[in-house]
């Protein structure tokens, strides 16, 4: 016996029930797009990864050859390590900047609405626009080096130095910390004020309140942002294409040859769709494993309210 008032997926025309057909009808657009546009291509890509497949001329099954080829390719490992290094720099940088700006702008400072808008605007700009603008800033005689010159500091070759290209990319990508800021702002607003009042009575300072109240209470949001930034970091691509000195994709010296750029070149410059699909499949597995690992261990540092 089904209790009254509950929705049931049964073929019953009773007023308290929703017909299965109606539910499916409303779900269809989403289900179709999920299957056709998401799962379909994923499984198709996995299938292609076992084939020698070029855009012209079709393909044939070659077993694990693409995987062997990929794991013995030095540029695969280079792309992977570059991507991990970028991600390892980007996540904390975006977290600190996003949270700090949100924290500052959640307090009572004058013209905070204006500051919020100013910080958020880059988040709605296309990444390519930010990078092209950033490229002019970081040229040998660009604005950044001209500024350093005022203090008598020699400006480095930001875009030509293999050691500086990734930090420069991170500096430009965190211009878009406005998205993180908005999310953190929402989370900070949701922290009940009486916690702070109680802490103040107990003599806890601003920093202590931030570390012991704010951070634990917004930890689900921090966790969410970290996962999003991780996925973003693993897919990083455009800085490697646009930024390097001399318009050298992946340069200088392959220091910005990110995984996704390597995949892009395999697929769309060399049209080796089989190996490109292998790279995509490996990336899916890596993303899944890392996310799974984080989810599994998240209980230790994420505090959900009871």
């Amino acid at each position: 016996m089904i209790p009254r008032g509950q929705y049931m997926l049964i073929r019953d025309k009773g007023p308290a029930h929703v017909r299965l057909g109606t539910i499916l009808l409303f779900l269809t657009p989403w289900l179709v797009s999920l299957i056709v546009l998401w799962y379909g291509p994923i499984f198709y890509t996995i299938g292609l990864s076992f084939m020698k497949y070029r855009l012209i001329g079709g393909g044939h099954y070659i077993g694990l050859d693409n995987y062997i080829e990929t794991f013995t390719d030095p540029f695969f490992w280079k792309g992977l390590s570059n991507t991990f290094v970028f991600t390892a720099m980007f996540i904390p940088a975006n977290f600190v900047l996003g949270l700090m700006t949100a924290w500052l702008l959640s307090s009572d400072i004058p013209a905070k609405g204006l500051f919020r808008s100013i910080i958020y605007i880059p988040a709605v700009l296309p990444v390519i626009a930010i990078l092209v603008l950033g490229k002019f800033l970081f040229y040998p005689n660009g604005l950044v080096n001209s500024f350093l010159d005022i203090f008598g500091l020699p400006g480095p070759f930001w875009l030509a130095n293999p050691k500086l290209i990734k930090p420069t990319s991170v500096m430009l990508m965190i211009w878009q910390c406005g998205t993180a800021m908005v999310i953190y702002l929402g989370a900070l607003k949701a922290v009940p004020n009486h916690y702070y009042e109680a802490a103040e009575i107990d003599g806890l300072g601003r920093f202590g309140q931030f570390m012991r109240i704010t951070i634990p209470l917004i930890s689900p949001t921090i966790f969410f942002r970290a996962v999003m930034d991780l996925i973003f970091g693993l897919m990083i691509f455009i800085p490697g294409l646009v930024l390097p000195e001399g318009n050298v994709p992946g340069g200088p010296g392959n220091a910005s040859r990110y995984y996704a750029l390597h995949l892009y070149e395999k697929a769309f410059q060399r049209f080796n769709l089989g190996e490109a699909s292998t790279l995509a499949t490996i990336l899916i597995i890596i993303s899944f494993l890392i996310t799974f690992l984080i989810m599994k261990t998240s209980e230790r540092f994420v505090h959900y309210e009871a």
């Binding site: 070759f157 130095n161 293999p162 390097p244 001399g246 318009n247 050298v248 010296g253």
Partner: peptide, 15 residues
């Protein structure tokens, strides 16, 4: 394909 790699030589030499 080859052009960008060769264009990169001065950058790599410099460092």
């Amino acid at each position: 394909i080859v052009k960008p790699w060769l264009r990169d030589v001065p950058n790599r030499r410099m460092f």
